[in-house]
C-alpha cells in the first residue's frame, strides 16, 4: 500500500490565500521524501492537511489508506509529527513530558517510561531527562520533540524543519537515526525543509514547492536530468588546446559539457595526447540548490 497519496489536494484559507494548489503525488512506504521550498511555499499547510488539523478546500489525501479529514485520530495513531508550533510543557521535565505523551498514545506507564528512556538515550538527552523543559535549549527541545514523535513507533513521520537549532553533532545523530528508521523499520519520512543542502544529505526523493504548487518531483538524478540534459566536467590543467572546446573558468580551471560520465576518460586521453598537463578532473552534477534555482529562476539563496 502507498504510504501517502495526494489527489488534487488544495487548500484556500478563509482570507482567500491559496496555500496549496492541486497537489498530486504519491509516496511509497519507507521513502524519505523531502518536501522543499521557501517559507510560505505551503509545506506546513500540507503537513496540517495530512494530519487532519486542516480540511482540504478541494481534492483529498490519504495516509496509509486513511482520510485524515475524516478520521484524524486514526492517522495520529500511526504517525509522529514534529513542527515548530507543536511544543511541550515547560513545567514538566523531559522525562515527564514523554511519559505524558506516551499515556496519550495508550502506552502503559511501564512501557512509556521504558520507551522514553530508550529514546532519550538514543538522542543523547539522558542527562537532561530530569530537567524542566523550560531549561532546555532550542536544539534540545527539538530533539525531545523528535523523541515524542517516535514514542508510539510510528509508521509515518511528518517532520517540519526537524534539525533547526541543533548543533552539527546532533544533526548527524538525528540523520543517522532517521535513515535507520526508514531503511530497517520501513518508516516513511515526510520531511519539510527549506535547507536544500540538508535535504540532499538524507532524502531519497524530493518534491519542490513554490507558492503552493509542486514544481517538480523525483529522485536527485531525475531532477538533474530535468534541468540539464548532460553534465559538466571541470579540469584543472595547463597547456589545454583550444580544439577540445573547453572554456576557461578561472586561472587554470577549465570546464566542458558532456552528456554522460563515460565520456570523461576519452576527454582526458585526448587532452594528454594533445600535450595538456592535468592536475585534477571532476564531474559536476547540479546540486539540489542549483536545480531549485534553475526551476524557479529564483536568484536569492534559500539558506
Amino acid at each position: 500500500m502507498e504510504a501517502i497519496v495526494f489527489e488534487q489536494l488544495s487548500k484556500t484559507y478563509p482570507g482567500g490565500k491559496e496555500a496549496v494548489k492541486e497537489l498530486n503525488l504519491s509516496l511509497e512506504q519507507g521513502e524519505v521524501f523531502g518536501f522543499l521550498g521557501p517559507n510560505g511555499a505551503g509545506k506546513t499547510t500540507t503537513v496540517k492537511l495530512l494530519t487532519g488539523i486542516l480540511s482540504p478546500s478541494r481534492g483529498s489525501c490519504r495516509v496509509l489508506g486513511v482520510d485524515p479529514a475524516q478520521h484524524p485520530e486514526q492517522v495520529h495513531s500511526f504517525s509522529g509529527v514534529v513542527t515548530e508550533h507543536a511544543q511541550m510543557y515547560d513545567h514538566l521535565t523531559g522525562m515527564e513530558n514523554l511519559e505524558f505523551y506516551a499515556a496519550l498514545f495508550g502506552l502503559s506507564r511501564q512501557q512509556g517510561t521504558q520507551r522514553a528512556k530508550q529514546l532519550l538515550e538514543q538522542l543523547d538527552l539522558s542527562d537532561a531527562a530530569g530537567q524542566k523543559l523550560g531549561a532546555y535549549s532550542t536544539g534540545m527541545r527539538q530533539k525531545l520533540s523528535l523523541a515524542r514523535a517516535l514514542l508510539a513507533q510510528p509508521k509515518i513521520l511528518f517532520l517540519d524543519e526537524p534539525t533547526s537549532g541543533m548543533d552539527p553533532e546532533s544533526v548527524l545523530r538525528v540523520n543517522r537515526m532517521l535513515r535507520r528508521l526508514a531503511k530497517e523499520e520501513g518508516v516513511t519520512l515526510f520531511l519539510c525543509t527549506h535547507q536544500l543542502r540538508y535535504a540532499q544529505e538524507i532524502c531519497t526523493r524530493y518534491g519542490l514547492m513554490e507558492q503552493g504548487r509542486l514544481l517538480a518531483c523525483g529522485t536527485l538524478e531525475e531532477l538533474q536530468n530535468r534541468v540539464s540534459a548532460g553534465m559538466k566536467v571541470q579540469i584543472r590543467a595547463k597547456k589545454v588546446p583550444p580544439a577540445l572546446g573547453l572554456a576557461l573558468k578561472a586561472d587554470g580551471i577549465w570546464e566542458g559539457n558532456i552528456s554522460r560520465e563515460e565520456e570523461i576518460p576519452k576527454l582526458v586521453r585526448q587532452l594528454v595526447e594533445l600535450g595538456g598537463e592535468i592536475y585534477s578532473v571532476s564531474a559536476q552534477t547540479p546540486s539540489l540548490e542549483e536545480i531549485y534555482f534553475a526551476l524557479t529562476g529564483a536568484q536569492e539563496v534559500l539558506l
Binding site: 488539523i53 495520529h76 508550533h85 507543536a86 496519550l104 498514545f105
Partner: peptide
C-alpha cells in the same frame, strides 16, 4: 498561547 495545544491535537484521541 504556549503552543502546546497543537501537540495535544496530534494525539490519537478524538
Amino acid at each position: 498561547e504556549k503552543r502546546t495545544l497543537e501537540t495535544l491535537l496530534y494525539a490519537p484521541l478524538t
